[in-house]
Amino acid sequence: MMGNMIRGANARDPQNTHNTDSHSKGSEDDMVVVLDDYPSSEISEPIFRMGEKLRLISKEAYWWRVRSVQTQKENYIPSSHVAIVYHGWLFEGVERNKAEELLCLPGNRVGSFLVRESTSERGLYSLSVKHMIVKHYRIFRLDNSWYYISPRLTFQCLEDMINHYSDFADGLCCALTSPCLSGMTPPSDATPEAPPVVMRRNFDWKKIDRGQLVSTDSCSDNMVSYGVRNSIAAYLSLSGNQDPAHTRRQTRKKKSKSVYAIPQNGLGNIDYEDDL
C-alpha cells in the first residue's frame, strides 16, 4: 500500500520477513495513536486516552496488544480505536473530523500536520494542517504516480512534499512545523527537569565601574562575568568615538532603505478543501 509513496517504505526489518503469520504480529517499530478513549469514560476510567502514542506488539484479530509510550504498560485495545502511523505523520484510516480532533489536542501547535488516507478510496490522500483553524488540502496524484497540491509543484513521493512544505508555505496556510502529536512528552523520568534559573534582581548598571567592564582579571571579585565583560568592552571600543546623534541618524537611514518584497506571481493561498 505504501509502496511508491515514500522512499524507503519497502525497507522493512528483514528479521520479520520469515514470519508465516505476519498479519497477526506487529513490529516494535510500529506506532499507533489512540483515536478514542478506551474504555469510554462513561463505562470506567480510560486505560488509554485519545492522542496517546502506543507501540504495536501484536495483532490478534479484533484486539491489538499495545504498549504505552508514556507509561510502558501493556494492554489490549480494539483495532477500531487506534490508527497506525507511518513516518510520524502518515495516519492510516483517519477521517477528516477525527484529524481535526487530533490536531486540536494540547500537544500540537500552529503548523502541526498529518497526512491521512481516504477512508473511502485507497491511494487518495489529504494534508491536514493546524492554523487558526484546521485546514485540509487534497493531495492529487499524476499518472506517473507523482504527487501535488498545487499543479506548479509536483513531488516524486509524499516525503519530498512534506520536506518542501516544511521549508516553505508556498500557498499553504503556513509552513509545516511538526507532525501531529509529536509534542507529546515522554515519561517524566526520561527527561530530567531543567535546573531553575536564578536572576539577580538588585543589579544596577549605574553602579558598575567602567574599569570592571574592561578588566580581564578573571579572578577579581566582579559582578559581571568574563564573557559579558569582553563583549561589552568590544562594543565600547567600537562605539566609543561615535556621536550618539550621528548613530541615531545612521540607524534611521538604514531603516528607511528596508522594504518588503511583494510576491509578483500573484499566487494566493492554495485552498483545496477536501471532503475525504
Results as ranks from 00 to 15, higher is better:
213 L>P: 01
213 L>A: 02
213 L>Q: 03
213 L>D: 03
213 L>N: 01
214 V>Q: 01
214 V>K: 00
214 V>C: 03
214 V>T: 06
215 S>L: 00
215 S>K: 00
215 S>H: 00
215 S>Q: 02
216 T>M: 09
216 T>V: 08
216 T>D: 15
216 T>A: 08
216 T>G: 04
216 T>F: 09
217 D>G: 03
217 D>M: 02
217 D>A: 05
217 D>R: 03
217 D>T: 04
217 D>F: 05
218 S>V: 12
218 S>W: 08
219 C>P: 00
219 C>W: 12
220 S>I: 02
220 S>W: 08
220 S>G: 13
221 D>P: 03
221 D>F: 07
221 D>E: 14
221 D>W: 08
222 N>I: 05
222 N>Q: 10
222 N>H: 10
222 N>K: 05
223 M>W: 10
223 M>A: 14
223 M>H: 06
223 M>F: 07
224 V>E: 04
224 V>Y: 01
224 V>N: 01
224 V>K: 00
225 S>Q: 08
225 S>F: 05
226 Y>A: 06
226 Y>I: 02
226 Y>S: 04
226 Y>H: 04
227 G>V: 08
227 G>F: 12
227 G>K: 11
227 G>N: 14
228 V>Y: 10
228 V>T: 15
228 V>P: 00
229 R>A: 02
229 R>K: 03
230 N>T: 04
230 N>M: 06
230 N>Y: 04
230 N>P: 00
231 S>R: 12
231 S>T: 12
232 I>Y: 06
232 I>L: 14
233 A>Y: 05
234 A>V: 08
234 A>E: 15
235 Y>T: 07
236 L>W: 13
236 L>E: 14
236 L>N: 10
237 S>G: 08
237 S>F: 06
238 L>K: 08
238 L>D: 15
238 L>V: 07
239 S>G: 07
239 S>R: 09
239 S>H: 15
239 S>W: 12
239 S>F: 13
239 S>C: 11
240 G>T: 02
240 G>A: 05
240 G>I: 00
240 G>P: 03
240 G>H: 02
241 N>V: 00
241 N>Y: 05
241 N>I: 00
241 N>F: 02
241 N>C: 01
241 N>A: 07
241 N>H: 07
242 Q>L: 11
242 Q>S: 12
242 Q>R: 12
242 Q>H: 13
242 Q>C: 09
242 Q>T: 08
243 D>E: 14
243 D>C: 12
243 D>M: 03
